[in-house]
Design a protein around this nucleic acid. Structure first.
Lengths: 331, 331
DNA sequence: GACAAAACGTGAAACGTTCCGCCAGCTCAT
DNA sequence: ATGAGCTGGCGGAACGTTTCACGTTTTGTC
């Protein structure tokens, strides 16, 4: 780990000159440059990002943070890939953390990011109010929200039209003749859950069907809760004929419940999911889903963040991407 | 972003004293401690990890790196969770990167980790020789390999008994009466691929069945290659009656190929996978797999790394975990 | 009450950068 | 010939920590 010092000593110039060679500044005469570059090579010099970050003002650390609720959720994994791809091409490194849908972990990692003086943060907020996050934003840290939005503060945001996705899928189920459609939604204080619920309700209302509160259940986005809630719904005296499950992991859980009862899909009960997954095609039967362009969500979020880093005062932008209905055979 | 300076000024003591209050050193009298703590609170002081890392010698940055080939692969995602869980409890943050099974990306991220002066690195090496990684290790950076091993250098390693897993699964297929068993393996220069292939071959040999090279195909761990290679195998004049696919993503691809041909599983062709996945149960039919304790792999790796960080000279350790055969209905 | 030892506190160096301000020497117009 | 302006290069401060080497005060022991 050769330092600038050592390189300068070897090249018999000052560290300032070495630094200028590195930063492509033009104020260094070719001969000097050559000898410095030689020393650089000989010592296999690699700059310390740490020292650099300490010295630099905010916005030039080439490091951004990404906090996702659960890396094991393919939807977030795909977002992460989108963010990373864009970061990598811009020569940024990514500090990636899992909040595990836990408020304390999100807060811990937000602190870490602050302490690491990252240039900016991408994340789906824990909930619509997320006090810890709001503080960070107020402190001047560039933040781009993905997937979920914040009510109290205006930030850059890349989201999917969840309302539309849910509306279309439920309409499709209605077209298939279903009247009793069960909804398994995610955590209630998350914006996406609300949007999807609105879509579900409006689609019913558009056909003059009244809401039946007993048909909607709120989970926590995890497989386990999908399983449990599907069981609850299927245990009703008059169970729903279709299940609309509002994320991928809960859908896996719900499917397990359905299979365990040896119910036939879609004849006994139709199942529709949110988020497409690689194995949707291989399921029994292939699963109909609302597909979200997750990679694109991540990519655009990172690009928004890069723009905000160079221009902190620009007005916040919302990018809304369209989901796509993929009808396979489970509905 | 109050600094120690400001806190010291406010508390009317020197920064050294503030630092000692923070680091729980006992050499500070209660009254002083109280006034310092008050100042700390009032200014909402948060230490800069960057400055701390710059000053500290290696091994106390509370930051470790994890480089995984593909975060979208549930197996690696689960390892990542294991590493993270252990890191979080030890108050370590994680710099997580995707090498995307690409040598240049792995190298880039290794450089980043060095430049960030992380305390240590966990990763599955790109291949068995991995020059870039070997350099890093020789440079004295604590490294724990997971899943895959290195031939040239002895490191801490947490691996799964791949040989055993493959041997058992192939034996099971033989028990079911299969004689022509196709093998779809991963990248050839990765230790796990070799081990699994050895297991496959030995299981055949144990029953006196000669190797048929045309039945084994090497892919790249991706879904796409599983699809393609399954197609190749099924296109043979005398196709295999069973497919043993050596990772989860390639299994999804292979399954798609099987489904597209409307082949019945396991009657027309049996399919066995490596790595259990949440949706294995929901597949048609439920998939038989060799399950790897991925979370445990990650957890133990992180613990090994923590030990190595405090004691760099300790002899390298290999932890070998046992896989588990999960027989469902696809075989 | 003398003296050593312990307790408490301070100043300053160091980590590896970046960059501001400065200086020396040169060119060139006046 | 003189000074302005430019070019190439240097010194050193600053970023926010930790910690070493000291000082000063308090305590304890005989």
């Amino acid at each position: 780990m050769a330092s600038l010092q050592e390189v300068a000593r070897r090249a018999k110039v000052s560290i300032a000159t070495v630094s200028r060679v590195l930063n492509q500044s033009d104020k260094v005469v070719p001969e000097t440059r050559a000898v410095v570059e030689k020393a650089l090579r000989e010592l296999d010099y690699r700059p310390s990002r740490v020292a650099r970050r300490l010295r630099m003002n905010a916005g030039r650390a080439n490091l951004v943070g990404l906090i996702i609720p659960d890396i094991q959720n393919p939807f977030f994994a795909e977002i992460a890939r989108g963010v990373e791809d864009a970061a990598f091409s811009a020569d940024y490194a990514l500090l990636l953390c899992n909040s595990d849908e836990r408020r304390d972990k999100e807060r811990f990692y937000l602190d870490v990011m602050l302490a690491e003086s990252v240039d900016g943060i991408v994340l789906p907020p824990f909930d619509e109010t997320d006090a810890a996050l709001v503080d960070v934003i107020k402190g001047g840290m560039p933040v781009v929200c993905v997937d979920r939005s914040l009510t109290k503060v205006k930030t850059d945001l890349v989201e999917v039209d969840n309302y539309r996705g849910a509306f279309d899928m439920v309409t499709h189920l209605l077209d298939r003749g279903h009247k009793r459609i069960g909804l398994i939604e995610g955590r209630v204080h998350v914006s996406t859950s609300r949007e999807r619920r609105r879509g579900y309700l409006d689609a019913l209302a558009a056909r003059g069907i009244a809401e039946r509160p007993e048909l909607t259940r709120a989970g926590d986005f995890r497989q386990e809760s999908g399983h449990m809630l599907a069981n609850e719904l299927l245990d009703m005296r008059k169970p729903p004929t279709a299940l609309f499950v509002c994320n991928n992991l809960m859908t896996v859980g719900a499917l397990a419940a359905v299979h365990r009862r040896k119910l036939r899909v879609p004849d006994d009960v139709a199942v529709a999911g949110f988020d497409d997954v690689p194995w949707a095609e291989a399921l029994d039967p292939p699963l109909s889903v609302v597909r979200q362009p997750a990679h694109e969500v991540g990519r655009q979020a990172m690009e928004l963040l890069l723009r905000r880093i160079v221009e902190p005062a620009r007005p916040p932008v919302t990018v809304r991407l369209m989901p796509e209905l993929i009808l396979r055979r489970s509905t």
